[in-house]
Design a protein around this nucleic acid. Structure first.
Lengths: 183, 183
DNA sequence: TCTCCCATGTAAATTGTTACATGATTGA
DNA sequence: TCAATCATGTAACAATTTACATGGGAGA
């Protein structure tokens, strides 16, 4: 459901092809959402049918022809309605295979669990360090395109979530290791 | 994919009906995984076919008949193989509709975003306080059933993740509010 | 009397992933 | 010469959610 609104949100910055949309997803939204090309094209078709977007064909000779999508008035309304609802409505309980695995790890030799958790800690530490060293270049890159001067602010908020998240996981892993070592 | 192993993990504690499994999911795994009854029955059927679980019928007169599922040797092997793989293999990039909504919230009046974020902060604070006040009663309730004395330890780890997660969200929300107020 | 618990499932819709198919151009 | 980029999609599959269907017994 949210993917439709994500696409609407991007098209609200400017018209784009399905290919462009999938690039922007990879570049900018990748920290908290991934979308397959096949899914994007499917949703675009749906939204065209429901009148949220319009498409126009552009013939090209050197490259494949393309269809450029633009948000319609109805699409803007739908986007605004979605943005207006409380954030809590978009909040989802975590769905973490990692926690599922950990939950049952009592069946494993402690040393093995210890190794697994240590590797996870290293992974999280790496992610934190990466995010700190190259802080959200994509934001500065896209900044001029935003149609509200507030946009980059909110983009930064989401980037900060990512940092805090990995930081939290790192600390959590450290605390588990301490507990295991004190056994 | 993980759901199968979650069910195996539970059946490894003792035999159960599909109904029991769905209860335990609600009671104990709800913080990081939800499973619909329909999904549970389907996976059980699959796993029966692949020989990971056995079912026996119990006829009842006052209540509906039931099918009690037990893990097989092959099921235990599959579970062990899954538990043995690195935690990182189970790690998933966050997939947060909330962040998607926030990402595009530059299109909203700041006051409205402020209100939404404040409500989210209150929600997270409430969750942290709830988790601190009644710390994981389910763990103590189920403890005797665990077949490894390590089980409650790992159960607690997953519960702690939940607390840390909501704590992190709370702090993140606070920091966004500060930023918005300093505009 | 009404709701909740027990207990099993089917059916359909939605959402997400993986693989397949095509084909010219550009840069290393 | 080889891989990557641009650009569109289809098909099949896997996972998840929601709704439907049934029906007795227990407790408020």
């Amino acid at each position: 459901m949210s993917l439709k609104y994500g696409l609407l949100g991007l098209l609200n910055y400017g018209e784009m092809t399905g290919y462009d949309l999938s690039k922007v997803f990879e570049d900018s939204l990748n920290h908290f959402w991934r979308a397959q090309k096949s899914q994007i094209y499917r949703e675009l078709k749906d939204m065209e049918k429901s009148g949220w977007v319009d498409a126009r064909m552009v013939l090209q000779s050197d490259r494949p022809n393309k269809r450029i999508f633009a948000i319609t008035a109805a699409g803007r309304e739908a986007l605004a309605a979605w943005l207006g609802q409380p954030l809590g409505a978009s909040f989802q309980q975590p769905h973490e295979p990692l926690l599922l695995q950990l939950f049952f790890s009592g069946a494993l030799p402690v040393e093995e669990s210890r190794g697994q958790i240590a590797a996870f800690r290293d992974y999280c530490r790496g992610a934190v360090e990466l995010l700190q060293s190259q802080p959200a270049q994509a934001i500065d890159f896209y900044s001029p395109e935003g149609n509200s001067e507030l946009d980059p602010l909110f983009w930064r908020f989401t980037a900060e979530y990512g940092q805090r998240y990995y930081q939290m996981c790192w600390e959590w892993a450290e605390s588990m290791l301490e507990t295991l070592d004190s056994l």
